[in-house]
Structures are given as structure tokens and as C-alpha cells.
Design a binder for these strands. Structure first.
Lengths: 146, 146
DNA sequence: ACTGAAAGTTGAACACG
DNA sequence: CGTGTTCAACTTTCAGT
């Protein structure tokens, strides 16, 4: 990926709603050229999409937790991600190296909802869980330098 | 927060670049009314901003890891987040309940960079670290239902 | 708070270098 | 790959309800 594309991606990471005109000004391109590059970045899958960054407390999801999961039967096929995909509380699922298989990131309204969710995760995926509750988040979703 | 605002936030979580006209159509409001509500949501801090969702592999950051940190001297003031804030590799920092104090999420180009970063984290924040390397990410940044 | 309309800006598509 | 032009679409502002 060349430098112009890198710059464009950086700018869109910081402000996903920046106009193509501003993108052009910032990179020394015309509006059309900037737009064209953005479209190509989208087509190539480098830019997957755009999302509002929202205060999760304000929308009624004040409780965040990381849940590490481990299959109860290590010989069974490991399709935990698919078996859990319908749980809307899951924000992310990472397959990881180490003692456990996956780390899930979840958001729920209350501790009670976390309890319910944990039961469903265990049941639905045949896993045991270890949960780490988030107390506060000094920062999150910072744009990477690259 | 009322239902119209909830709908708007949901739509912008899924497509952060949706136009105010489309937002209005989807919610039964005029363009101006939709715009007004979005601005209020931004002012109130409910919408913090907008960001492109990017393929981190494609931008040269294929290696993701979670780093749990714990102060070496538990009696010292715990200001790890500020002491680490300048490290651009950090995407997130969560204060957590449990054995460790913080969970960091980092993105780097290579294992060597992770090694360097870990050394800097330990030095800069006076902490010990436990690192979990991400092998793959079935999903991430899913929009919450609320 | 929402609507509707005017004026300015931006975006999409295309022809061309 | 980039530019410039054109038309359509979107944003912004404001007077009105």
C-alpha cells in the first residue's frame, strides 16, 4: 500500500465522516481522486466499513467484561465462534494462544445479565469460562499509527 | 434516551457514513430533524465520533495481543494508563477486577515489535506483564443491540 | 421540536490526459 | 492514476409552525 492510501486510511480512522474534499485537501489530491482511492480501499477490503463510536454507558450497556473460554471436551470439534455468533452481547471473539481457546468481549446492562449470558455461553458452546470484569476504560478504540 | 435517538444511534453504529437524508427516511423524520438529533447526540457525548473500520493485517499490523499488567510495587501510585498513553501501539486500556490491574490491547507488525513493546511497558509503568497472543479474530467491533 | 425550502457544498459518473 | 466537468444528491441554515 502506498503512502497516499496510508494517509487516507489514517484520516478516516480518526474521522470516519471526513468529506472527500477535505480528504483531498489533506493529501494534495482532487476530490474525485481522493474518492476513487477510498472506493478502491473499500473494494479491496482494507476499509471494512464505518461506525459511530458510542458511549456504551449512555446507551444502557455500562458493564463490559472479557470472558476467556475453554472447551470442556477438548476432543470435540471446536466451533465455539459459530455457536456463539447469535449472542448479540458479544462485541468480539478472538482465538488466542495460551491456556484458553478464545477471549470474548461482552457488553451488558447489569451483573444479572452477565450471569445469564455466562450460562448461555457455557451451554451453547460447551465451554468453561473465566470472566474479568472491566471497572473503567481509560482509553479504547484509539487509532493505530502505522 | 428516547426511541428515535436509539434508532439513530443503531443506524450510525452500523453505517457511520449514512447521510442525514437516509437517516431521516429510516426514522420517519425530515432531514433537518434527523441532523438536529445527531448533533445533539454528539454534543451530549453519546456519539463520541466516527471511525473507519480497517483490516489491521492490510495496514501492516497483523499481530494483536492482550497484555495483562500488574504493578511490581503495589504501594506506588497506580498511574499506568497515563504512563503508557504515549505508546501508539496501544489500542485500548481497561482497568479490571481480578488478579491484574489492567488489560491492554495492542497491535504490532511482528513478534519482535511485541517484545520491544513489552519491555517498554514494563519499564515505563513499573509493571509485570502477562501476554496473550491473538491467533485469529472470528469477529470484532460488532454493533451492540440495546 | 419538527418542517420545508433556499443556497451552498459535496458526491457520482464519465470523458480525457 | 489523476484531472476536470457535469448533474444529482446531500448539508446547512433559517424562517415558519
Amino acid at each position: 500500500m502506498e503512502d497516499l492510501d496510508r494517509q487516507i486510511v489514517k484520516l478516516l480512522l480518526q474521522d470516519g465522516r471526513m468529506s472527500y474534499t477535505d480528504l483531498g485537501k489533506a493529501t494534495g489530491l482532487s476530490t474525485s481522486a481522493a474518492h476513487q482511492r477510498v472506493r478502491r480501499l473499500e473494494q479491496r477490503g482494507i476499509i471494512r466499513g464505518y461506525a459511530a463510536v458510542v458511549d456504551t454507558e449512555a446507551i444502557g450497556l455500562p458493564l463490559t467484561a472479557f470472558i476467556s473460554v475453554k472447551p470442556i471436551d477438548p476432543s470435540a470439534p471446536d466451533d465455539a465462534p459459530e455457536r456463539l455468533a447469535d449472542l448479540e452481547e458479544l462485541e468480539a471473539c478472538h482465538s488466542v494462544a495460551g491456556d484458553e481457546s478464545y477471549i470474548l468481549k461482552v457488553r451488558v446492562p447489569t451483573p444479572g445479565d452477565l450471569e445469564t449470558l455466562l450460562a448461555r455461553i457455557r451451554l451453547q458452546a460447551g465451554v468453561s469460562t473465566r470472566t474479568t470484569v472491566v471497572l473503567s476504560t481509560p482509553y479504547e478504540a484509539r487509532a493505530p499509527r502505522f
